[in-house]
Amino acid sequence: MSGLRTPTDGPVALDDIDRALINALQGDFPLSRRPFAEVGVRQGLAEDEVLVRLQRLLDARVLTRFGPMFQIERIGGAFCLAAMSVPGDAFEDVTAQVNAFAEVAHNYRREHALNMWFVLATERPDGIAECARRIESATGLPVFLFPKEREYFVEMKLEA
């Protein structure tokens, strides 16, 4: 499984150009036939260097993805936060069982009695409850669903 990283791994060494590139690439990616060349012009980098650095950042898992982020709710789908209380000795097995569901978009371990928090993404709203039931039967543990009732703000841009 890719993307596993814990706080103990610590930050990856990034140079100033990497940081500037990450910050520049968090939005407004050009809709053109040479978008990386355009990004490069803004950053004072050749197109090739933008591509090489971006690939390196993805390989090092500094970036988990590069591409469009979809709001599936806008096309009839649903996202839902969910949580489980997983016994410590079963944590690894339950992680594998939960992550095996394609509907699980993200999954985090958190320090609380509810210690596994994940996001389900399904193409239809009724897919959420059904997927939660399947996870419950796969793991034998209750799944708490925390659908968003209202969103007050959302902007996820982290200064690198």
């Binding site: 993307g3 990283r5 814990t6 706080p7 791994d9 610590g10 930050p11 990856v12 990034l14 940081r19 990450i22 690439l25 968090q26 939005g27 407004d28 990616f29 809709l31 053109s32 971006l54 950042l57 090092a60 898992r61 500094v62 970036l63 988990t64 993805r65 590069f66 591409g67 469009p68 982020m69 979809f70 709001q71 806008r74 096309i75 985090y108 982290l158 690198a160």
Partner: peptide, 30 residues
């Protein structure tokens, strides 16, 4: 490209770009 533009305007696409791993860029506390 026309369709991607439309998806951005309608919010089907929230944004296009890099998704950082916040641990790796130094935000170790989430």
């Amino acid at each position: 490209l026309a369709r991607i533009r439309s998806m951005l305007e309608r919010g089907v696409i929230r944004r296009i770009g890099a998704v950082p791993n916040h641990y790796a860029i130094g935000y170790t506390a989430n």
